[in-house]
């Protein structure tokens, strides 16, 4: 009994709450499908090179532009490389670049937003004005300009994604703080002399997590889109990495002869983006209204 007192303090998701979330998710078949797609690709990203039947870079002049068959499930490209293996391995870069970039944006953006919202005044003005400037650029344009000068590399791509999405996370975190700041439980915390860091991270952050998580999944979907677009424009991951966007671009010339070269990576992009969007949409509902049980 006593031990239970310690349990759970500061835990963001209690088992009971998780059960409620799961029940709600199960009631939305579309969101559930999206979540399944997301995790399927995640598994592919983790295991890609291990389960790929061929080396994604191995060229075979005898096997050029083969249509899909039992040997090559998604056919081969103009160098005789196995499209299936290239799609599988391509997932790794998407999660690696988009995932880490989004994560970085979430951490930095949320911290800046919390700071701006809670400290207020000059800090708020300064931080938000600077971030507004980033929002004044269409995302793809800013990414292109930054990559043009910094040069395309994995690290730069991750940093660019992070820079692009920091303002969104900061805005959400800030508005959550501004909303929560006047809530009475925060005032109660101030009345008992809690430190600013306790109020920000223990009282506010857990309440801001659900919308931030939703935002993170939306941003991740956008980042896939962005990385693919950059790849298509020739500004993405440098070769020989099998970037989905670049694959589509390279396949355009062979579209009449070998449409599979284009269709499979294109389908992979769309499926992952749509799946992640559906999951984000579902999460919004899952986290939506407060958890209620045994009371009105």
């Amino acid at each position: 009994m006593k031990g239970k007192v310690e349990a759970d303090h500061g835990r963001l998701v209690s088992p009971r709450r998780a059960a409620v979330y799961w029940r709600r998710l199960r009631l939305q078949p579309v969101a559930l499908a999206g979540t399944f797609i997301f995790f399927l690709f995640l598994v592919i990203a983790l295991l890609g090179p291990l389960i790929a039947p061929y080396d994604y870079a191995a060229q075979d002049a005898t096997q050029r532009l083969q249509s899909p068959s039992l040997g090559h499930w998604m056919g081969t490209d103009n160098f005789g490389r196995d499209v299936f293996s290239r799609v599988l391995v391509g997932a790794r870069d998407v999660f690696y670049l988009g995932g880490i970039g989004t994560l970085l944006a979430a951490v930095v953006g949320t911290s800046l937003g919390l700071l701006a919202g809670y400290v207020g005044r000059l800090w708020d003005e300064a931080i938000m004005r600077v971030l507004d400037v980033l929002l004044a650029f269409p995302a793809l344009l800013l990414a292109m300009v930054l990559l043009a000068t910094a040069g395309p590399s994995d690290l730069n791509l991750i940093l660019v994604i992070a820079v692009l999405y920091i303002p969104m996370f900061a805005r959400i975190a800030r508005s959550m703080v501004l909303d929560l700041r006047t809530r009475e439980f925060i005032e109660a915390a101030r009345l008992r002399g809690e430190k600013r860091s306790y109020i920000l991270f223990r009282e506010m952050l857990p309440n801001a997590l659900p919308p931030l998580l939703v935002e993170a999944s939306i941003r991740f979907a956008y980042s896939i889109f962005l990385v693919a677009s950059l790849g298509f424009l020739g500004l993405g991951v440098p070769p020989p990495n099998p970037d989905w966007g670049r694959q589509v671009n390279e396949a355009r010339t062979f579209f009449d002869a070998a449409p599979w070269m284009l269709l499979f990576p294109a389908a992979a992009i769309s499926l992952l983006v749509i799946g992640t969007s559906l999951m984000a949409d579902g999460l919004r509902h899952v986290f939506g209204p407060p958890v209620a049980r045994g009371s009105r």
Binding site: L12, E184, P206, N207, P290
Partner: peptide, 11 residues
């Protein structure tokens, strides 16, 4: 405080 809905941290 006045509002029981906001005077406790929901988490």
């Amino acid at each position: 405080f006045q509002s029981p809905e906001t005077s406790l941290n929901p988490r």
